[in-house]
Design a protein around this nucleic acid. Structure first.
Lengths: 241, 241
DNA sequence: GAGTGGTCTAGACCACCCG
DNA sequence: GGGTGGTCTAGACCACTCA
């Protein structure tokens, strides 16, 4: 591991590994914070920071005056991050992608701003790459995604990206962008004859329509997506306060 | 304010108020951490803790070596917490509820565990209150919710709760439960003739089907919900890493 | 080099739960 | 009363950005 990795992060990692591998069982009590100070030879604040990370991830819970315990419910696949490919890979599913369209457009469709009230960044170059794809699991179509990427953020994107491969992997490797938070709007949708022809499904199939928007560290918008999911690809969310 | 309220919490509150009221504008730079130490007369760690809260809420973002800034995208209504009533109230919408059914059942429907793999808590008393409601905005039906509440957690619930009123408000006031995190599964659904009769909608209307499950502080499950949303009540999510 | 946020220490006191 | 997690202090050093 990179020696510059913060201590609290290493501790988070180590404890997370022990929890996920089953070395600590659900509802089992972890060593107290003071014991962990002794174990990891660091200050209590650093321990607490590591535990806070685990708490935020939902892997542990803390009870004042009692102790810290392994959460009984973890490991749900969540929507939000990781593109389609990564999410399915985590579940051990075999996926494939069919590219329907790959073109440059002059302006973002206005429903992102007008109807959805998603914020919008303006650049001198307002062109976007429009990428339309069918997503399949075991050869079965489960999702239809149209992504819009502001070209101003990704110079030379169209020359180098192979649309058959994972988009996020590429963006992360080449442009070092990383997703900070996302926003989405979900609503039911009844597929029309046009959809049916375009996506090879039966007209009248119910779909889950999703508008999706991704922010990076400096609060610039990295991507807009408009997609449809079938009943074969349920979305899972986890939320905390 | 309760004098026992932690300092970091008071600072979070005060800054949040200033941001939401527009005293700080989007992308405006906040005072540096050291300046805030002077302003609030506290230690830097406490300031940092307050700022971390705001960052987690998506109200600010921090850039190493540069400063702390007001986030340009905030204030989206999010799904996850607050029942239907609270969420709509935040948006200034007038809501009403029609109770279809209010009964005690011996066991939770098994699709929560079998199909969805939601975890389940077992008590000596496994009865649940089943509460079926139609939710309306401006007299228009937008959601159909069936909630299941473990009676073991809420003694005397059925005697005292008026199903026309806000459920969460009641649970919070009477049993001091508070929601820690939630999990949900969403998928498209095509309404059948039965649904149409039950909910007074047209058969064949596409709906968003949601399975929902709420955890409390000690990781006990406070509630299961199975609901349907129409296109008139889109769900919004915010997600962060 | 000055200013910023990111990490960390070694203490302290408190509120809470349990035996 | 002893152990637990929750809050807080007053420092320190570092990495990063910008002029």
């Amino acid at each position: 591991m990179d020696p510059r990795t913060p201590i609290y992060y290493q501790i988070t990692d180590e404890l997370e590994e022990k929890i996920r591998s089953g070395q600590y069982h659900p509802r089992e009590k972890l060593p107290s914070e003071n014991e962990l100070v002794g174990i990891f030879q660091t200050s209590r604040l650093t321990i607490r920071r590591a535990l806070s990370e685990l708490e935020r991830k939902g892997l542990i819970y803390r009870l004042h005056g009692i102790g810290t315990f392994v959460s009984p419910a973890q490991g749900m696949n969540t929507f939000g991050f990781g593109g389609f490919t990564e999410r399915c890979a985590n579940l051990g599913l075999e996926t494939s992608t069919e590219v329907l369209n790959f073109e440059i457009i002059d302006e973002l469709p206005d429903f992102f701003t007008t109807t959805l009230q998603f914020p919008i960044d303006h650049y001198e170059d307002n062109r976007h790459l429009k990428l339309e794809r069918i997503r399949k699991i075991n050869k079965r179509s489960v999702a239809f995604e149209t992504s819009y990427l502001p070209l101003a953020l990704y110079p030379a994107l169209t020359d180098q990206y192979d649309p058959e491969t994972s988009l996020y992997q590429f963006l992360f490797n080449k442009y070092k962008v990383s997703r900070l938070h996302t926003q989405s709007i979900l609503l039911p949708y009844l597929s029309t004859g046009d959809d049916a022809a375009r996506y090879s499904i039966k007209a009248g199939t119910p779909l889950l329509e999703v508008f999706f928007c991704v922010w990076g560290k400096a609060q610039q918008i990295l991507e807009y997506t408009h997609s449809f999911y079938t009943r074969d690809f349920p979305l899972r969310f986890r939320w905390e306060e």
